[in-house]
Design a protein around this nucleic acid. Structure first.
Length: 469
RNA sequence: UCUUCAGUAGCUCAGUCGGUUAGAGCACCUGACUGUUAAUCAGGGGGUCGUAGGUUCAAGUCCUACCUGAAGAGCCA
């Protein structure tokens, strides 16, 4: 083969189209069609959703070589880049040389050029990045991860790495996966039947983190503004299109921010990310809009350009009670003091306001111990950002910075205070008002990609009874 | 975990009220076509109807259990 440097298809089609020049492309065959004189190969190298068309004159190549080029095969091709004679694409390559790197036996290769369900693709998660849909999702996933770091870096936040293995079982966000090196077939127990952890790796029970928030607060009360962005684990038996056992979470935490500034940050952050996706992932988003969700692009524009509605839990309940009086039927009753059901949140977001909603000031009984108590002594400075279709995309709060009040809340909730001494110390020494929130990365991706199942926006989903690949 | 729905060819699906030999498109094989656009056209091969029981003269179709998947709910991000 001639020594001609390889070009990425995205660069050829989007940036440098030097017509008349010989170039080399390498990628995977999406489809081959044609007749006995001429073949057309749609080649994709993952650099974008776009394919380049290879034009192959049949007489120039051996029958066996052309026969081995099937959907899914990996090839390298050299030829002249020319303006296309056909409709449907502006450029194409008239191929002189082809090398087949890897064949894909069409009888056993699971992917075809037509019609796969997302459910089927989940069963072949090792191959689904080869599809248009998943390559698009994965490129957007990358772009969003980059945009998150860029946003925080540009706004003076420091990226803080909070521990993945935690010794505190009071992070307050659900069931945890235990981490142990004990021999599970031979556990030592004391006279009361309790497991003896002295010989475990850390000499105490440990788990995978369910949130980096508590450590994040320590960072914010030293560096001013930090964020975490890392894997998070919940051992809940949740079987829904919105839950994963292993997911990625972004948790900014800012000293001196009160609840209003926390809301400002959350709204600005989400709008920035939405606009970044529109600006930088337009081909992939256009594909997903066409293929899966015809309202995707308009929804992204709407969120990027409209103010979120902000209202208190109390006002939200009043709206829901009004709706009930006007004949709207909910499965669950609405009353002040109970947590809002999914149907209630959906009514506010999708029916009443038809806009993202930030709900604040929830009753203290239904929220976590670390949230700052309001003057009414009944509500806390919590905020949930609710999005259409996805529901809660962000949960956050202003944190309780008063030592005595925080200690009281910990005791009220029967959290072992001896494990919380380091957290309480931040309120003993140089305490400050501060706020933060958690954004579920995959929920953000549900919104940005228009996909409807969270298992389709992460390369390898971890859900109850499923840890394949 | 609860409720509901689904499981038929490698993939996507149809299959009427329980009735004779279970169909289509794609993929694969053979052939046609001088530029296709998930190419098209003609022909061909390909099925333990999720598994196990049961009802019936007769079950892809009805019943029971289980397995798997999905949607809704709970928990939450």
């Amino acid at each position: 083969m001639e020594k001609i440097s390889r070009k990425k298809i995205v660069d050829i089609l989007k940036y440098s189209s030097e017509v008349g020049v010989k170039i080399n492309v390498k990628g995977w065959v999406r489809s081959k069609r044609g007749n006995k004189n001429i073949n057309f190969i749609a080649l994709n190298d993952g650099s974008s959703i776009l394919n380049i068309q290879l034009v192959v004159e049949v007489e120039k190549f051996s029958e066996s070589l052309l026969k081995s080029i099937t959907t899914g095969a990996c090839i390298s091709a050299i030829g002249e880049l020319v303006a296309s004679q056909g409709q449907g694409q502006s450029l194409e390559i008239h191929v002189d040389e082809i090398q087949v790197y890897g064949e894909a036996d069409p009888l056993t290769y699971p992917l075809q050029k037509k019609g796969h369900s997302l459910e089927f693709l989940r069963e072949i998660a090792h191959l689904r990045p080869r599809t248009n849909t998943f390559s698009a999702v994965l490129r957007i996933r990358h772009a969003m991860a980059y945009a998150i770091h860029k946003y925080f870096n540009d706004n003076g936040f420091f990226y803080m790495h909070t521990p993945i293995i935690t010794g505190s079982d009071c992070e307050g966000a659900g069931q945890m996966f235990q981490v142990t090196t004990l021999d599970l077939t031979n556990i030592s127990k004391d006279k009361l039947g309790e497991v003896i952890y002295d010989d475990d790796f850390f000499g105490k029970p440990t788990s995978l983190t369910v949130s980096g928030q508590l450590e994040g607060e320590l960072g914010a009360l030293a560096l001013g503004a930090i964020y975490t962005f890392g894997p998070t684990f919940r051992a809940e038996n949740s079987n829904t299109p919105r839950h994963l056992a292993e997911f990625w979470m972004i948790e900014p935490e800012v000293a001196f921010n009160e609840i209003q500034e926390n809301m400002d940050l959350a709204e600005d952050f989400l709008k920035y990310l939405t606009q970044y996706a529109l600006d930088n992932c337009s081909d992939d988003i256009a594909f997903l809009n066409e293929m899966w969700d015809k309202e995707l692009i308009s929804r992204l524009h709407f969120v990027a350009n409209n103010k979120f509605v902000r209202l208190s839990y109390t006002d939200g309940v009043a709206i829901l009670e009004d709706a009930v009086r006007n004949g709207h039927k909910f499965e669950f009753p609405v009353c002040w003091g109970t947590d809002l059901q999914s149907e209630h949140e959906r009514y506010l977001v999708e029916t009443h306001f038809n806009c993202p909603v930030i709900l604040t000031d929830y009753p203290k009984e239904i929220k976590a111990f670390y949230m700052k108590l309001n003057e009414d002594n009944k509500t806390v400075r919590a905020m949930d950002v609710l999005f259409p279709k996805i529901g809660e995309i962000i949960g956050g709060s202003q944190r309780e910075d008063d030592y005595e009040k925080l200690k009281g809340r910990i005791e009220d909730m029967d959290i072992p205070i001896k494990d919380m001494w380091w957290y309480l110390d931040t309120r003993r020494f140089g305490s400050a008002p501060h706020s933060g929130f958690g954004l579920g990365f995959e929920r953000l991706l549900l919104f940005v990609t228009g996909m409807s199942n969270i298992r389709d926006v992460i390369p390898f989903a971890r859900t109850p009874k499923n840890a394949a690949f």
